[in-house]
Structures are given as C-alpha cells and as structure tokens.
Amino acid sequence: MRKPVKKVSKKMRKSDFEEKFEKMVGEYHIAKEVLDSLEEGTTEYAKKKKQCDILFASAERFINTYQ
C-alpha cells in the first residue's frame, strides 16, 4: 500500500505574512526618508519618488492578495 500524500497548504502562515510585510514597510520607510531629504524638482527626487510609489503599490498588492 502507498503512503497517503500530504497536501501542501498554499496559505501563508500569519507569522510569515507579518515578517514579509514588516520588511516591505521597512524598505518603504527608508526610501521615504531619503526622498524627504532630497530637494523637490530634481531628477534624483523623481527617481526616488517613483521608487517609493512602486514600493507602496507592492505592499498594497501584498495586503490585498493575502487578506
């Protein structure tokens, strides 16, 4: 007789979810601090603004996916 196969759960554990989300939020806050220190209207400011927007959207999608 064959052994029964264990089904792999695709749901993310709560602790894994919190760790990953905390990491994403940390990255966003670091990028936001750098953005706040830059002068508005420069090309570097525009690049950091775009990066912050991407990080924020990524965190928002992550929340919506796993909620």
Rank of each mutant, 00 (worst) to 15 (best):
K23P: 00
M24Y: 08
R13G: 10
K3I: 01
E19W: 01
A46W: 00
K7S: 10
T42V: 01
S15T: 14
R2A: 12
K49C: 01
E40M: 02
K50M: 07
T42D: 09
C52I: 03
S9Y: 05
D36E: 13
K48D: 01
G41R: 08
K32T: 12
K23L: 04
K23T: 11
D16L: 04
G41P: 01
V8Y: 10
D16H: 11
G26C: 06
Y28R: 09
M12C: 07
F17I: 04
S37E: 14
K48T: 02
C52W: 03
E22K: 14
S37N: 14
K47D: 08
K49D: 08
E27C: 06
Q51V: 07
E27K: 12
E40G: 01
E18P: 00
E39D: 11
K11W: 04
G41T: 12
E27Q: 13
E27S: 14
M12D: 06
E18A: 11
L35R: 05
K49N: 05
K14H: 08
R2W: 03
K50Y: 02
S15K: 13
F21M: 14
V5D: 11
M24R: 12
D16Y: 04
E40C: 00
E19Y: 02
H29L: 07
R13Y: 06
V25L: 12
K23Q: 15
K50Q: 07
T42P: 02
L38W: 09
S9H: 08
E19C: 05
K11M: 05
G26L: 06
E27L: 08
K32V: 13
V5T: 13
G41Y: 06
V5Y: 03
S15Y: 03
K14R: 13
E22W: 02
V34W: 02
D16G: 06
L35S: 06
K23V: 04
R2Y: 05
Y45L: 01
K50H: 06
K7P: 00
K20M: 09
F17N: 10
E39Q: 13
Q51T: 10
D16C: 05
V34T: 13
K20D: 11
M12R: 11
